[in-house]
Design a protein around this nucleic acid. Structure first.
Length: 420
RNA sequence: GGAGGGUUGGCAGAGCGGACGAAUGCAACGGUCUUGAAAACCGUCGUGCGGCGUGAGCCGUACCGUGGGUUCGAAUCCCACACCCUCCGCCA
């Protein structure tokens, strides 16, 4: 949710910022109009209710013979209140629906452009240079029986896979490695629920905008979280932090569910884009002044994790046109994938400023003045399936086996993987 | 799945139709006293929305699990749902 006070005070500034990400100015004008109508009606309702309350208050002590006329008068005021309340409810519902669709204001430093216009800030690690024809992850994993895509499709359909043998063990190792790094940086480990109720989805900004991307249960009582960002953010919904509680940092491990509607025919090979994957996700609640620093901090942890895995990747500043509804700024790590000869997204970290906290009502106590909405940030520590692709493709050897990077060896108890 | 009990401010806990945003205690915060601290005493002490001063403040309104209903008036009465606790069944 954007800041309505800011929209009232500086409508042109807000419109200018949001036009960078392609919002129709008419949508914003509509919200402003509904907000004004809403406020006018609130004043009317409050006044009417005040009159009604005063009228009924005096009835208690009134003499018996006066009571009936007073009750009649109060009844008429009651009707008036009822009518105005209905008008208000209608306008408020319209207003809420319109306001919920306005995305967050982009950070001034976020680059212009749409998907593909990202700015590469830096790269790390060495791009592997093979003296043989590199295989892609499907060949590498299938030939070592570390993955079963055919039976994944038989049981669950397209975009599902079994990880087995070394593939399964690789997941456990990567997850524990990533959690350990995040914990070293003060993040509290969490296994969150992944079936969540509607308020958690609205609160984090995935609804209403990304409805086509989300699985629901048959009775539609639950939504399947597409990332543990959802239950981690909602963990503190409707709460007021003591300033001493912040920063509050978590690292969650959970499966992630995505419909991938509209991605038909895209990335159909292997496990790059699947309906269900596992992810270790960092999440922070911070003082509003600190979110810029926290964003850099989370990004640096991601770089530490992948540098430790000796994976070559680039850091990309994502353009405003490619931001999710709740993000003000986003950095992705894109790893080199020899099987595709391309850099592909393996992590993503976003500063959502006060957009989620405003919807979730996660605030911070302020002694002199209004309580502040905290800022929230999220970032991938390990997206298991994509990390596996980058790892096996970059560290593959001529015989199809994979050299395990030093940092992962203690977790795997092995120096070589996928050997036949 | 069956039976019963519960849900009130940060916590504990009263209130069961008429001035209740809600007694009281604890915690917290400010002050007096003290060399300092404790104790004692005095005061403050929820959140949202709307408005005014847009400065600490003031006014109105809403909120006693959630949503409906009855009533001139609901924390208090009625209905539904959610969650928590206890017991039985099932289960990892």
């Amino acid at each position: 949710m954007i800041d309505l006070r800011l929209l009232r005070e500086d409508p042109d500034g807000v419109a200018a910022a949001l036009s960078r990400r392609g919002l129709d100015p008419a949508d914003l004008a509509n919200v402003r109009d509904l907000d004004e109508r809403r406020r006018a009606l609130v004043a009317e309702v409050d006044t009417a209710r005040s009159e009604q309350k005063n009228a009924s208050r005096t009835i208690g002590q009134a003499a018996p013979d006066e009571r009936q006329t007073m009750i009649d008068a109060a009844s008429r005021l009651k009707e008036r209140v009822g009518e105005l309340e209905q008008d208000l409810a209608t306008v408020e519902a319209e207003f809420n629906a319109a306001a919920a669709r306005i995305p967050n204001l982009p950070h001034p430093d976020a680059p212009d452009g749409v998907e593909g216009d990202g700015v590469v800030l830096r790269t790390f690690g060495d791009r592997p240079d093979f003296d043989f024809e590199p295989r892609d992850h499907v060949e590498l994993l299938e030939s070592a029986d570390a993955i079963d895509l055919v039976r994944g499709a038989k049981v669950s359909g397209a975009r599902f896979a079994y990880l087995k043998g070394d593939g399964a063990m690789l997941e456990f190792a990567l997850v524990r490695y990533a959690i350990d790094v995040a914990m070293r940086h003060g993040h509290i480990p969490v296994i969150p629920p992944v079936l969540v109720k509607e308020p958690a989805m609205y609160g984090t900004g995935f609804l209403p905008t990304d409805a086509q991307q989300i699985f629901t249960t048959h009775d539609e009582e639950f939504y399947l979280a597409g990332t543990s960002e959802v239950p981690l953010a909602a963990l503190h919904m409707d709460e007021i932090f003591d300033p001493g509680d912040l920063p509050l940092r978590y690292v969650g491990y959970s499966p992630c569910f995505r419909r991938e509607a509209g991605a038909h025919g895209k990335d159909t090979r292997g496990i790059l884009r699947v309906h269900q994957f596992e992810k270790v996700e960092m999440f922070s609640f911070v003082h509003p002044d600190d979110s810029g620093d926290e964003h850099e901090r989370i990004l640096s942890i991601e770089e530490e994790i992948f540098a430790g895995l000796e994976i070559h990747a680039q850091v990309v500043d994502i353009p405003v046109g490619d931001l999710g509804a709740s993000a003000a700024r986003k950095f992705d790590l894109e790893a080199w994938m020899p099987g595709q000869q391309a850099y592909r997204e393996i992590t993503s970290c976003s500063n959502t400023t006060d957009y989620q906290s405003r919807r979730l009502k996660a605030r911070m106590k302020v002694v002199d003045g209004d309580n502040l909405f905290v800022h929230t940030l999220n970032g991938t520590a390990i997206a298991v399936q994509r990390a596996i692709i980058a790892l096996v493709e970059q560290h593959q050897r001529a015989d199809g086996s994979v050299a395990v990077p030093g940092a992962l060896q203690p977790y795997l108890g092995r120096e070589v993987l996928l050997a036949r």
